[in-house]
């Protein structure tokens, strides 16, 4: 069942991105930034975690979950350490993903040549 909801919810988030690009004529960079901000706001009002409960990877794989994870890390640290936790915790959850992307991209640049 989660596979079906992951497919539908994940697909719909991508369609929202496509609509932002085609109808609102946003550049891809603007589209991605908007989706991340949307994810952060949705987590702020407590909706994104419910979407993850419902759709699993359909909510965690799109870039919107990056905003959600940033807020989550900040709030978790803030609960433990007070206001300063917002600064120290903001990359707590997302650091694995960002590190992985940096490291593997760098390795790829070492090994592969640009195509065309």
């Amino acid at each position: 069942m989660t596979f079906i909801t992951a497919f539908i919810v994940g697909g719909l988030i991508c369609v929202v991105g496509q609509v932002l690009m085609d109808i609102f004529k946003l550049t891809p960079a603007h589209t991605m930034a908007s989706l991340v901000v949307a994810g952060a706001v949705l987590d702020g009002v407590g909706l994104y975690e419910r979407l993850i409960d419902f759709a699993g990877a359909g909510a965690t794989v799109p870039i919107t979950s990056f905003g959600n994870a940033l807020v989550h890390g900040a709030m978790q640290e803030a609960d433990e350490n007070g206001w300063i936790g917002i600064l120290t915790g903001i990359f707590e959850v997302t650091s694995a993903g960002i590190s992985a992307a940096i490291i593997f991209s760098f390795i790829a640049a070492l090994i592969f040549r640009a195509k065309g």
């Binding site: 697909g11 979950s65 992307a101 940096i102 790829a108 640049a109 040549r113």
Partner: peptide, 23 residues
């Protein structure tokens, strides 16, 4: 289009392709 750009794979793709192209 957005189907491959919006998932986290698109984020990694943008970084990897920039890294390879500007090597």
């Amino acid at each position: 289009g957005a189907g491959s750009a919006v998932p986290v794979t698109g984020f990694a793709n943008s970084m990897a392709s920039a890294a390879i192209e500007h090597r």
